[in-house]
Simulated assay, not measured.
Amino acid sequence: MKSFEHVYRLHRLLKSRRYPVPFERVQAELECSRATTKRVLAYLRDVLGAPIETSREPRGYRYTDEAYELPGFWFSAEELQALLSLQQLLASFQPGLLDDALAPLRTRIGSILQSQGLKDSNAARIRLLRAAARPAGRHFAAIAAAVLQRQRLMIDYASRGSGQTSTREISPQRLTHYRDNWYLDAWCHKSNGLRTFALDCVIRADVLDTRAQDVADDRLNVELGGSYGIFSGAPTATAVLRFTAERARWVSVEQWHEHQQGIWLADGSYELSVPYHHDEELILDILRYGPDVEVIAPASLRISVARRLEKAAARYRGTSPE
């Protein structure tokens, strides 16, 4: 709701400033016309009772009561999602795991929500559903401690792809919660490179006395965050996907990757370009859209998706693909 956003932005601006805010700065923050800016100021002052004072020197607007808060429920969608996600994430941890350390945080989040009139009984009316979530594994606490204390780990890792278990010495870099599952980015001393491990596949984790080898954030972001998906690596290709006009209304507002590019075509379809390295996760997401998407490039990705679709169709026909 646009008017809500205007009031919320203005309130946040005035709360964050100790000195009067010029009208031009208010207008720029609200991203609207002079007339609309004046209406929002009047609404906040006259309807919501905000203690707005207009000063002449320096010229501008400010709150005379720094303790003023908007009445009712005034979280933005992003803040509400962050609070509820954190609350549900804490509740998902195993009983006894970091209970004493996390209890004050749970209490604080509950207090923040209650201050906005969102009681525990009502919080359940806003649901954040977890799809295909796997448990964090029984070694989460040890791994998290090693990440924060910068210690190396010796792990036994059961790879789902190969079905094999390997022992590795790793220097943990960061934990990632992605699509409701936990992953560890680490420098693998066995492979002599950066790798991403699913925490639920770690069957043993021993914290070593050896100091972890640090990898610069820039390198982590390039090698592990530059391409599509969690097992990304530095991008080596760009997928060009063309969605039908019907599906384009959804896909055009989706964020697949921070460096994606999208264009509307004359027939109403939508073409999305996404950098990637490993194609496995990308292929699975493409297949979700069935006949509503076509891989335009590269040819190798187009062939891989076509083969998957042919095998799926053959299974339903009860025949073997050629």
Rank of each mutant, 00 (worst) to 15 (best):
D279A: 09
G268S: 12
R288L: 08
H257K: 11
I286E: 02
H259F: 13
E258A: 07
H278G: 09
G262D: 03
E281R: 10
W256V: 06
V253P: 00
A266G: 04
E258P: 01
S273Y: 09
I286F: 08
H257Q: 13
E258Y: 11
V274A: 07
I286M: 06
Q255D: 15
S252A: 15
E271F: 01
H257V: 14
L282D: 00
E280Y: 03
L272V: 06
L265E: 15
A266P: 05
L272M: 14
Y270E: 05
L265F: 14
E271I: 10
S269Y: 01
L287N: 00
L287S: 04
S273C: 01
I263A: 01
I286T: 05
L282P: 05
I283Q: 10
S252H: 15
G268N: 09
S252F: 11
V253R: 09
S252E: 15
P275A: 10
V253G: 02
L272E: 11
W264E: 05
I263T: 10
I263D: 05
E280V: 13
E280M: 12
S252R: 12
Y270S: 01
I263Q: 06
L282W: 09
S269H: 06
D279P: 01
Y270F: 14
P275K: 08
E271T: 03
H278L: 10
V251R: 00
E280Q: 14
P275G: 11
L272H: 12
W256G: 02
Q260G: 06
V274E: 01
E271A: 00
E254G: 08
G262I: 08
L272A: 03
R288K: 09
H259N: 14
H259Q: 15
W250Q: 07
E271S: 07
E281H: 11
Q255A: 15
G268I: 10
S252K: 13
E258I: 12
G268F: 08
D285Q: 06
V274I: 06
G268M: 11
H257P: 13
E258S: 12
V253N: 13
W264N: 06
I263G: 00
V274N: 03
S269W: 00
E258K: 02
Y270L: 02
E281S: 11
P275T: 07
W256F: 08
V253C: 08
V251F: 04
S273P: 08
H278F: 13
Q255E: 15
Y276G: 00
L272N: 04
D285E: 05
A266L: 04
